[in-house]
Each structure stands twice: as structure tokens, then as C-alpha cells.
Write a protein that binds this DNA or RNA. Structure first.
Lengths: 212, 212
DNA sequence: TAATAATATGACGATTCCTTCACTTTTGTT
DNA sequence: AACAAAAGTGAAGGAATCGTCATATTATTA
């Protein structure tokens, strides 16, 4: 019976002076670095504080517990990536399928690769039971965004739009996670955006029929 | 600097009587169950032993440490899935692309869904730094298998075979992991094999050109 | 400048966990 | 049945970690 400790995750104290904002940011970045270098198992609050150049006590003034630290990093990452994709999708409403796929895939790959350290570091965090909710919520929003934009496509329609949108989502996130986590060869990484576009478009064109 | 403690992972004692084999199996299965129910963070040797209906001492007679326990489960899983795919690929050497994709995808999905509890449980384990090597080795073998079988296709060839094979691999593993881990709706899960076939074939047909 | 508020520190209590080992019980053999 | 080998047990040493709090330092305000 897993304790459903709905721990408080909001900061206990808000930074009011400039120096403390610096500290908060340093702790945030240190969390990513420790995750990358040591792994989740060896991430301790003391290690994070040391890497950030402060002390545990300070850490606990801004993050109520270790969990909150990991949540903060995960939340910002999925939030930013989601927001980028949402904006890209919005900008291609009512365009042909190829334009939609191109814009969305590019935005997604761009957002992920711009934050590749975070993406790598968070792989193990996202796998923990405690983080599922956060990730799922973000995925639901993403699915809604993709469903909406696919519906506006001017040249094609889908028999089963929910499935098509889900596969589009899975085809972007799944392989990209695999690629980033697995440390693909540079040749692959460079070509990723184009390859992923092919993958998604290849599927969606098969799942669609032309509008008369 | 992460300690590269290449811990001994082979069992300290081999089971010689029937009862001990039962125990070893029970511990193995209990590991999966604890992972599923409690998560990696809360997996302790005592919890595993209790769930298996034995004691910690017994556990340590067959697994030298906690890490070895997780490795054993992960290794069997990737080994079995890899083997299934390998056999499927072998059986469609020298056939057209559609036949190859169909056989390989089906075998992969079959193997994964037959072991869906394991797959779910291992998601967090595979994310740990310590497990990377094991997973990477399996992925390398898989890539070699896919490269080999794609080369034998009778109706198409690839400009860039390594990239095509990598994407084929990523298109199978990535979305399936996403689907299983995210707990997709049943409608999606039921249609998964067909959808994944579309995804892979859609990509590969774009990346290929017909043999004259 | 003096007083107050904000920020920072790190030793420490409490807890959890890994692993060992001296010992018991069960099974197989002579 | 007597003995040896295999299997099983769980208390406890030792190590690691979380989060607190009494105290110290720095900034802001009056």
C-alpha cells in the first residue's frame, strides 16, 4: 500500500531579493546537472545544494522537499515544450497536411534539442510513479492540440481522427525520446527533424483521405 | 564522478533442489510486482523477499545484490523480445518490404504485449544510469538484425540504409514504449499492431526506391 | 545608524535501507 | 537412523539520506 502522500510542492518562501533568485536558479540548474552526472538514485539534496554552491538549509527554504525539486524541473520542461508545439500548431491552422506536420515536428524537435540536457536528465524522473500525473496532463493537452489542428487541414480528412492524432503524438515523442536517451550517432541527430517529418507524414497520409 | 562499481551480478549459488528453483522464480516475479506496485524508489530487498514469501537472507543467496535483481529482470525481458524479433526477421529474409515490416512489427508487438507487466515495470529501471549498457547492447543487436533484413528486400532499396534501419527501430520501440507507459486507451491498444505497421511502412516506403 | 526582515548555514535526530552471518530447518545419501 | 549438504531465517551493524532548527550573516528600512 503506497502512501499517497500528496506532499506540498509549492515553494515555502518566495524570493524577494535578487540574490535569492540567483540561489533558486542555481539550485534548479544544479538539479539537472546532478541528474545527468549521478543519476536519479544518487541525487540527494546535499549533492544538489553543494553543486549549486549553497547549503541544504537554503534548498529547503525554497523547495519543501526533494520531490518538489524534481517536479519543478520536469514541469518547466514539459510546459515549455508543450507551449512551443501549441504555438506552432496555432500558426498553421487551416493549412494543408504537409504544412501542419512540418511546422509541428520542427517546433517539437527544436524545443527538445534546445533543452537536450534537461530532456536527458528527466528521462528517469518521468519514469517514476510519482511523476506520472504531471506528464499525463501535459500529454492530454498535447493530444488536444494535435487533434484540433489536424481537423483544420484543408486537403485531407481522417476516418478516425482520435487515433490519427494519438499516433502523430506517439510518433513524435516516442522516437525522439528513444533517440535522445539512446545517444544516437551525430549523423542521425542532425537529420532528425527531417526524418521525423517523413515518419509522421508517411503515417498520416496513409490514415487520411483526400477532401473532394 | 559516479563510482563504476562493476558489481558482481552472477548468482552466488545455483539452485540444486526443486524447491530452491521455485524460490528463485518467486523472487524474480516478486521483483516485477514490487516495481509495478511500489515503483523503483520504494523497491527494497526486504519488500521483494516478503512479496516472494521468503526472507532477505534467501534472496541474497541467489542474487548478490539489489542491482543484480533488477538486471536479471531487465535482461530476460530485452533478451526475449530481441529473440522474438530476430526469429521473425529471419523468417522473412528475401521477401518484399511489406512482408518484412508486417512480420517484424507483429513479432515485436506480440512479444511486448505478452509481457506487458514486465514492460511497464522496467520502464523506470531502464532509465537508470546503471542499466544503460545492457539496453544499449540489446539495441545494437536489434539494429543489426533490422539492417540485415531490410537489405534483403526484393522490391526496394535504400539510399541510406543505416538511417532507415535506425528509424525503423526507433519507430517501433519509441511509440510502443510511449503507449505502454502512458496507459493508452483500449481502442488504441487493440489496434496497435496495425497502426505501428502503418507508421513503419509509411516511413520506409518514403525512404526507399523501387528496384528496377 | 539602529532595528527589522530576508537569506544562508550545517550539525543532527530520525528513518530507511543494504547486506551479512550465526543459526535452524529441510532434503538427500549411506 | 545418522550424517552431510542444501536451503532458509531474521536480527543487527553500518551507511546513506531526508528534512529541521537554532544560529549566523546580509540586506532593507526607518
Amino acid at each position: 500500500m503506497a502512501k499517497s502522500k500528496d506532499a506540498n510542492l509549492s515553494p515555502r518562501k518566495k524570493p524577494r531579493q535578487a540574490r535569492s533568485q540567483v540561489t533558486v536558479d542555481a539550485i534548479f540548474e544544479a538539479t539537472i546537472q546532478v541528474l545527468l552526472v549521478e543519476g536519479l538514485q544518487r541525487l540527494t539534496t546535499i549533492r544538489v545544494a553543494e553543486r549549486a554552491g549553497t547549503s541544504v538549509g537554503t534548498l529547503y527554504q525554497y523547495y519543501p522537499n526533494k520531490q518538489a525539486l524534481l517536479f519543478a524541473v520536469l514541469q518547466r520542461h514539459v510546459g515549455e515544450v508543450g507551449e512551443h508545439v501549441r504555438r506552432a500548431a496555432e500558426s498553421v491552422h487551416g493549412r494543408p497536411l504537409t504544412a501542419i506536420v512540418s511546422a509541428v515536428v520542427r517546433a517539437f524537435v527544436q524545443a527538445k534539442t534546445d533543452r537536450i540536457d534537461e530532456a536527458r536528465a528527466l528521462y528517469s524522473v518521468a519514469g517514476e510513479l510519482d511523476s506520472r500525473r504531471l506528464v499525463e496532463e501535459s500529454e492530454e493537452r498535447g493530444l488536444a492540440v494535435l487533434t484540433a489542428v489536424l481537423r483544420t487541414s484543408t486537403d485531407v480528412q481522417f476516418d478516425d481522427l482520435p487515433t490519427a492524432a494519438y499516433m502523430f503524438m506517439a510518433a513524435m515523442i516516442g522516437p525522439t525520446t528513444y533517440m535522445i536517451e539512446g545517444g544516437a550517432p551525430p549523423s542521425i541527430m542532425r537529420a532528425w527533424s527531417g526524418q521525423l517529418e517523413s515518419l509522421c507524414l508517411g503515417y498520416l497520409e496513409r490514415a487520411a483521405y483526400a477532401i473532394p
